[in-house]
Design a protein around this nucleic acid. Structure first.
Length: 434
RNA sequence: GCUCGGAUAGUGUAGAGGCCUAUCAUGGGGCCCUGUCGAGGCUCCGACUCGGGUUCAAAUCCCGAUCCGAGCGCCA
C-alpha cells in the first residue's frame, strides 16, 4: 500500500474517493459495535470509522489488535460525514500493520498528560510526534527557508566556512578542543573571521546559516553549547545599512510564518504579531539611563556591560524589539570599528527582544593598521591571526555584518519557555544524548 | 560555578512522623457499549532516586551523593 494523501489533503468533497493514508495510531475509541481509529501523520489527524456492520470483521479485528503509536497504512473510501471531525471520515477496506509499538510509551504524544522537558528530550523522537512539538519544527523549517529567501533576494551568497579551526586565541568564549590527527584543533565559535575574509575575496554579500560551538558552562533557558547562527556580512555598507537589513529580515520571517503557518500557530495557541519596523535605536548611553531608572539597576555605571537584570529592565521599558548601538569600544570585539572622532565608542549594535539578546553586529574595522592596533589593545597576538589579517593587507573593502541566533529567534517568536524547545537534539552542559 | 527549590507507577501528580498494604489522572490487561472527538461504565496492574542517620515507628525529619528545575554568573 502506497500513501496517496496526507491527512490534511483529504476534504469532504472527495466523498466516495479511495485514498491511502499512512501514519501512527493516535487513539482508538472502541464502542463495541462501532469503533474509531484516529491516525496521525505529519500534517494532522484523520478519523477512520469502523461500523461493525459495514466493515469486514478481519479489518475490525486488526484495528482492535493495534497498540497506540503503531505504524499503519489504511486504505479506504472517503465519506463526507457531518458528525466527523473536519466533516469527513475514512471507511477502511484494508489496514496494513507496518510496525507495532511497545507499551508503555515513554510519554503521551496526544498531550493529555504533560511531560517535563527533560523527559521529552530523553524521548525526543516520540515527543516530536505531538502536534505541538511538530508545529515548532515545521515553523522553524519555514522560518529558515524564509530567511534564506530574504537574504538571497538581497543579493547575499550562501557560503560554508570551516567548523574545525586552529586558533584558540580569539579571546572571550571558551572553545571545545578536539583531536585533529597529530594536532589540537577547536570547534569554531563563530564564522566571523571567515565571513570577513569573504569580503576581501570580493564576494560582496554573504550569509551562512550553520552551527557554532561554545564551551561555556552556562545553565540557563537561553543558552546552548551548540547553536545555529545566521551570519551576514556586506561590503561597501555602513552599520545603519546592516541594521536595516536585520530588522527587515526579522519582520520578513515573522510575516512569512504568520502567512504560511496558520495551522501550526493555531496548534501553539499563538496570535503572532509582526514586529513594526524600524526598530528603536537606543545609544548605549541612553540604554544605561533607561536601566538605571529601575531600582535594581541603580548601581550600573557608564562603561558597564549590561547584565541580565539590566537587559530585563530595558526590555520591560521598551516592550518590543530594539537596537542598542554605539557601545563603549572596550566592551566590544577587536574587529568592531570605533568612531574616528570618538574612539571611545564604536559602531557596534545588539538587536534585543524584550526577553533577551538576539543578534549582535558592527561596522568592521577594515583598515589593516588600525585592526592590528585593536588586537594589541586587547593583548591579543597579531601573529595568531595572521591567516585573518593577511586578508586586510591587499584591498579589504569597508564592510559590516551581524550574527543572529536562530534558536533564540524561534524561541522569542513562538514564546517558548526554554531555548532547548527550538532544537531537535539540544546540547547543553550535561546533555550529550540523544 | 553560586544561591534557592525539588526527586513518589511508563507519564503527570497528592502526601507535612503512625490514617500508606501510598491519592488522583493518564496508561496497560479484561469485560460492557453504534457517533466518539479529553468517549463512558465496571474491574485488575503498576511507584516512594541512592546510601547513611534519628525514632518504638520515616515517602515524610537530619547528613551525604546523584539527577532535575528556577534565578544569577560566565557568554570577544
Amino acid at each position: 500500500m502506497k500513501r496517496t494523501h496526507y491527512s490534511s489533503e483529504i476534504k469532504p468533497e472527495m466523498n466516495g474517493q479511495a485514498v491511502i493514508v499512512s501514519g501512527w495510531v493516535h487513539e482508538i475509541r472502541d464502542f463495541g459495535g462501532l469503533s474509531f481509529l484516529i491516525l496521525r501523520d505529519r500534517e494532522g489527524l484523520v478519523q477512520v470509522t469502523m461500523p461493525k456492520k459495514k466493515v469486514p470483521k478481519e479489518i475490525v479485528d486488526v484495528a482492535r489488535s493495534l497498540s497506540r503509536e503503531s505504524v499503519i497504512s489504511v486504505g479506504g473510501a472517503v465519506k463526507a460525514e457531518g458528525k466527523a471531525p473536519h466533516g469527513y471520515e475514512l471507511i477502511p477496506t484494508a489496514i496494513e500493520v507496518l510496525a507495532l509499538a511497545d507499551a508503555p510509551l515513554p510519554l503521551d504524544p496526544t498531550g493529555k498528560v504533560p511531560a517535563e522537558l527533560d523527559t521529552r528530550l530523553d524521548a525526543r523522537f516520540m515527543d516530536l510526534r505531538s502536534p505541538q512539538t511538530t508545529a515548532v519544527f515545521v515553523i522553524r523549517a519555514r522560518a529558515m527557508k524564509a530567511m534564506r529567501d530574504f537574504l538571497s533576494a538581497n543579493g547575499c551568497l550562501e557560503i560554508a566556512t570551516p567548523k574545525i579551526v586552529a586558533t584558540a586565541t580569539e579571546g572571550g568564549t571558551a572553545l571545545f578542543p578536539i583531536s585533529y590527527f597529530e594536532r589540537e584543533a577547536f570547534l569554531n565559535q563563530s564564522p566571523q573571521l571567515y565571513k570577513q575574509m569573504m569580503m576581501a575575496a570580493g564576494m560582496d554579500r554573504v550569509y551562512e546559516i550553520g552551527p557554532i560551538f561554545r564551551a561555556e558552562e552556562h545553565a540557563t533557558r537561553k543558552h546552548l553549547n551548540e547553536a545555529t547562527s545566521i551570519d551576514v556580512e556586506l561590503s561597501f555598507v555602513s552599520m545603519e545599512d546592516v541594521m536595516i537589513l536585520l530588522e527587515n529580515a526579522i519582520a520578513y520571517v515573522y510575516r512569512h510564518v504568520k502567512e504560511n503557518c496558520a495551522r501550526e500557530l493555531a496548534e501553539l495557541g499563538l496570535d503572532l504579531q509582526v514586529p513594526k519596523t524600524p526598530f528603536r535605536r537606543i545609544p548605549y548611553a541612553e540604554a544605561i539611563a533607561i536601566a538605571k531608572a529601575d531600582p535594581e539597576c541603580a548601581h550600573l555605571e557608564y562603561g558597564d556591560d549590561l547584565d541580565t537584570v539590566a537587559e530585563h529592565a530595558i526590555g520591560k521599558a521598551i516592550g518590543e524589539h530594539y537596537f542598542i548601538m554605539d557601545w563603549p569600544t572596550e566592551l566590544r570585539a577587536f574587529y568592531s570599528q570605533a568612531y574616528d572622532d570618538h574612539p571611545e565608542i564604536c559602531k557596534a549594535f545588539d538587536l534585543m527582544h524584550p526577553r533577551m539578546e538576539l543578534s549582535s553586529g558592527a561596522q568592521r574595522e577594515h583598515r589593516y593598521a588600525q585592526l592590528v592596533k585593536n588586537l594589541e589593545a586587547r593583548d591579543l597576538s597579531p601573529d595568531s591571526f595572521q591567516f585573518y589579517l593577511n586578508a586586510f593587507r591587499y584591498g579589504m573593502p569597508p564592510h559590516a555584518g551581524w550574527g543572529l541566533g536562530a534558536e533564540r529567534l524561534i524561541q522569542t517568536m513562538l514564546d517558548l519557555n526554554n531555548v532547548r524547545e527550538a532544537v531537535l537534539f539540544p546540547r547543553d552542559r550535561v546533555r550529550l544524548t540523544p
